[in-house]
C-alpha cells in the first residue's frame, strides 16, 4: 500500500510528465519528503520556510490540509493527496 499523489500540469516537469505518483508517509510532511526523494525539486515548489506555499492547494482525499493541520496533516495508506495550483489574484 502507498499514498497516491496527483500532480498538477505545472509540476509534471518534475515527474517526467506523470499525472500521479506513488509515495509513502504518514503525514503530509513525510509524503512531501518522499516526493522530493523520488522527484528532486518538488519540495521547493510546495513548501516555503516550513509552511505550505500560498500558491498551492493540497488536499488529503477531499480535505484542504490548511484546515486539517497543514504539513502535519495525517495521511494513511491508500489515501490520495491532490496538489492544485491556487487560483487567485487581485487588482494590485
Amino acid at each position: 500500500m502507498a499514498v497516491t499523489v496527483s500532480i498538477p500540469t505545472i509540476l509534471r516537469t518534475h515527474t517526467g510528465g506523470e499525472k500521479s505518483v506513488q509515495v509513502s508517509g504518514s503525514t503530509l510532511s513525510e509524503v512531501i519528503d518522499s516526493l522530493e526523494a523520488d522527484h528532486a525539486g518538488l519540495k521547493g515548489r510546495l513548501v516555503k520556510e516550513g509552511t505550505l506555499h500560498r500558491f498551492v492547494n493540497v488536499y488529503v482525499n477531499d480535505e484542504d490540509v490548511r484546515f486539517t493541520g497543514g504539513l502535519e496533516a495525517k495521511v494513511a495508506d491508500g489515501d490520495t493527496v491532490t496538489i492544485l495550483p491556487a487560483v487567485a489574484g487581485g487588482m494590485r
Binding site: N57, Y59, G90
Partner: peptide, 23 residues
C-alpha cells in the same frame, strides 16, 4: 462560475473545496 472566496472588490481566490470538485 466560481465563488470568489474573498468576496472582495480588490482580490479573488477560488474556494479550495469548490476548485477540487471542479478540477
Amino acid at each position: 462560475e466560481m465563488e470568489n472566496a474573498e468576496r472582495s472588490p480588490t482580490f479573488y481566490r477560488f474556494d479550495s473545496g469548490e476548485q477540487l470538485r471542479v478540477w
